[in-house]
Design a protein around this nucleic acid. Structure first.
Length: 308
DNA sequence: ATGGTTTTTACTGCGTC
DNA sequence: GACGCGGTAAAAACCAT
């Protein structure tokens, strides 16, 4: 899918928004409005390779989703007591349908599925609260299902497991959310989420999921605050040129992103203070200073910006 | 549990407004 | 004197083993 397909407009001034639609972080370049709205259903969840394929796969009804316990495939018995023509039902058929409804509720969620349904609802709730795109909640749901299937979720706290699933889904989908972000939204201790994260990594999602690249962090910090897009551009440029350096490995991405933003804001003569950036990035000023020193000790700015 | 690494806390001195 | 910045030592947190 092309980036240009994802364009949308600012609700306040109508300008075209910039940013990472998949990450759910969008910014209006002219009025500075940060649109954290979830971009729903960006496109079909499948790719049509050729026209024939496309024709075969067209279907009626909402897309199948793995974030509902029955994949959204169950039949609903309407509760408005009308028939297909819109006529009200006769009293005796009414009671009949009432009973049908009752039984459907009982059958649809079997006891074994009740906890799964509860967990998936929780995942959807958290995702919605954090304005995460749909692909993240679907991925989280998939991970949780898998953990349930492998019986990893047995005797574990549902909130912990769902939070960890969402965190892993964010990493898999390249959405720059930290453990801290997740724990804040779920009202769980960061260590608790980390604990369940490790359980999932060990048993379900075994292959290593790389952390989102620094530029995602930079954009995220810019989007949640009122940082000048010019500063962002320069920060991204600096990050690009120095990113592969060995002295940066093992350092927290948030601290690094903060340092790039700080250096950029100083170069552009803006009024941003260390404290401000530190608060946005949720690191301390000391960490920013240390990263800045390392970057500036190893590179001359001129050399970064204008390499020979 | 442990040891190595990174971040935070708390405190200092310096220059500027 | 308040503020922003730069630095340091020690505590705390984190991570792999």
């Amino acid at each position: 899918m092309e980036r240009s397909d994802l364009q949308s407009n600012c609700p306040s001034c109508g300008n075209i928004l910039i940013g990472d639609l998949y990450a759910g972080e969008v910014l209006c370049p002219s009025c500075g409005l940060v649109v954290l709205e979830q971009i729903e259903d960006i496109g079909p969840e499948w790719k049509a390779i050729d026209p024939e394929d496309k024709a075969n796969r067209v279907r009626v009804g909402p897309p199948r989703t793995i974030s509902l316990h029955d994949y959204g495939l169950s039949t609903d018995i309407s509760s408005d007591m009308k028939d297909s023509q819109g006529q009200y039902l006769k009293p005796d058929t009414r009671t009949q349908f009432h009973n049908l409804q009752k039984w459907q509720r009982r059958i649809r969620i079997s006891p074994s599925e009740r906890s799964l349904s509860h967990s998936l609802a929780k995942i959807n709730e958290v995702s919605q609260m954090m304005n995460l795109p749909k692909n993240v909640s679907e991925t989280a749901a998939r991970i949780y299902r898998e953990s349930a299937r492998l019986k990893v979720a047995r005797n574990k706290s549902i909130s912990g497991m769902t939070a960890a699933s969402v965190y892993i889904a964010c990493r898999k989908c390249g959405v720059g959310r930290t453990l801290k972000d997740i724990s804040r939204s779920t009202h769980l201790d960061k260590r608790t989420v980390a604990k369940y994260y490790r359980i999932l990594i060990k048993n379900v999602e075994k292959e290593y999921i790389p952390l989102p690249p620094i530029h995602k962090y930079i954009s995220k910090l810019v989007n949640i605050s009122k940082i000048d897009p010019k500063v962002e551009r320069l920060a991204l440029q600096l990050a690009n040129k120095t990113n592969s350096s060995s002295f940066l490995v093992g350092k927290s991405p948030a601290g690094l992103a903060a340092a790039y933003i700080y250096i950029s804001s100083v170069l552009l003569g803006s009024e941003m203070h260390q404290k401000e950036i530190a608060d946005i990035a949720e690191v301390t000023e000391v960490t920013i200073r240390n990263r800045c020193r390392e970057i500036l000790d190893n590179y001359a700015i001129k050399q970064i910006l204008y390499p020979q």
